[in-house]
Design a binder for these strands. Structure first.
Length: 154
DNA sequence: GCCAACGTTGGC
DNA sequence: GCCAACGTTGGC
């Protein structure tokens, strides 16, 4: 399968790009996803070597702040089986896992944030779910053309 | 803080 | 299986 491109949202107050940069090997398990559409992409489609935009949501300046690489494909989300985790789900089990993670490694931070406002203003990006009203997907596919175009905005 | 949009839950 | 109620997301 050819390399694919993604966009992954994270709230900087919870886990921002600075937090990722501070992890060992600048790598983290992308845990806490509790939406089935996003889960299916994580579990079934994300492959090692794919690239993703790291997006800051729910903050003063929402937008893309970095690029990460998928370095490990899907495996069960440990937080779903941990009763002390805020992401605990009693319907998740080792025998029948419901939620999954991939591991991502920081490839680089962008020189400047590519803001949601800038992407909304760009006709070339009008088809992205990100700029659609009411979109709530925390993981979404990005086409190769969109990927290249967004990088040209940096 | 507001609120529109959306996903999930659960009664029937 | 429908759908109203509810909770969450996330921009503004």
């Amino acid at each position: 399968m050819p390399q694919q491109f993604w966009l992954m949202k994270s709230e900087p107050d919870v886990f921002g790009i600075e937090t990722l940069a501070a992890q060992p090997a600048q790598t983290t398990a992308w845990d806490g996803v509790r939406n089935y559409q996003a889960r299916n992409m994580i579990r079934d489609q994300m492959k090692r070597g794919d690239l993703a935009f790291f997006y800051h949501s729910n903050c003063a300046e929402p937008g893309i702040v970095g690029i990460v690489e998928i370095v490990r494909e899907a495996y069960p989300d440990a937080t779903a089986g941990n009763p002390t985790s805020e992401y605990f789900d009693p319907k998740h089990s080792v025998d029948n896992p419901r939620w999954f993670v991939v591991e991502v490694q920081l490839q680089r931070r962008l020189k400047q944030t590519i803001t949601l406002a800038a992407m909304k203003d760009d006709p070339a990006l009008a088809e992205m779910p990100l700029v659609r009203r009411g979109n709530r997907l925390s993981v979404m596919p990005v086409t190769a053309a969109e990927w290249q175009h967004i990088l040209s905005l940096e």
